[in-house]
């Protein structure tokens, strides 16, 4: 019998340590996908990540390549600076919805409008995870959070903000896709979308973004599998999956 071959293991760009994320959190999967793509594209020596403020704030402890940290919401401003000074590097930001779509909306829109040649991994879990489950701009109507105990209402809190659709209107934006992490099949689709976004940056096409619908079982108050089903049945109706631009 021939020797068993390893067909799946931790990518080299992901450090062999345990993350601080809750059980069932989508951040772990998204971190792994990014690390796998960095390995597959062979850009580990060229890539620079910009970590956000939010649950993923210490992503630089988990990825084994160069990382920077930005003030809350300002990851794309920092990424702009890095990319302009070092255009030979592959620069990407990894931001949550509270970071990218709330405090950092201005930086996001202007970086996209300038067509900065950077990639954005936008983790949308419809809630503020790090600070204790408050309403985020992407929270769905009727969704209960710490600050909307009776559910989000359109007249009081506004409707969910669809950053991907907004940015797709800008001429300098070249690639936007929305993916989800609710099943192994969708995880593999998410991986190819993130790879296309990185490839678009390598080809110097311009601003690229992948919005990843990710679960927060802790603050959605659901068991991990039910949280994934909620993405499939409820969240992906409000945020339709697929290529946006």
């Amino acid at each position: 019998m021939k020797e068993a071959q390893k067909i799946f293991s931790r990518p080299r760009s992901l450090r062999n340590i345990s993350t601080h994320y809750c059980g069932g959190c989508g951040h772990g999967i998204a971190h792994r996908l990014v690390a796998e793509i960095v390995d597959e594209l062979g850009i580990r020596e060229r890539v620079i990540a910009v970590a956000p403020v939010g649950c993923a704030v210490i992503a630089y402890d988990y990825w084994d390549f160069d990382c920077s940290e930005a003030a809350h919401g300002r990851a794309l401003a920092v990424a702009t600076g890095i990319k302009r000074v070092r255009p030979q590097n592959i620069v990407f930001t990894y931001q949550g919805d509270g970071d990218l779509a709330a405090i950092g909306t201005s930086e996001t829109i202007h970086a996209a409008n300038r067509g900065e040649n950077v990639t954005v991994i936008f983790i949308n879990n419809a809630i503020y995870g790090m600070t204790g489950g408050q309403m985020a701009p992407t929270t769905l109507l009727g969704q209960r959070t710490a600050t909307t105990p009776a559910g989000r209402q359109i007249g009081v809190h506004g409707a969910p903000l669809k950053i991907s659709e907004m940015l797709a209107l800008l001429p300098a934006v070249k690639y936007i896709e929305r993916v989800s992490l609710h099943s192994p099949q969708e995880v593999l689709k998410a991986k190819s979308a993130i790879k296309r976004a990185f490839q678009s940056q390598i080809d110097n096409l311009g601003f690229s973004m992948v919005e990843v619908l990710s679960a927060c079982p802790t603050y959605w108050d659901m068991p991990p599998k039910k949280a994934l089903d909620w993405i499939r049945d409820v969240m992906s109706k409000e945020f339709p999956l697929g290529r946006i631009k």
Binding site: K6, I7, P184
Partner: peptide
């Protein structure tokens, strides 16, 4: 490898 692909903590290795 369905288990390994969905594992958020990258705990699973597969040999074949």
């Amino acid at each position: 490898a369905m288990c390994a692909v969905i594992c958020p903590d990258c705990c699973i290795e597969i040999y074949k």
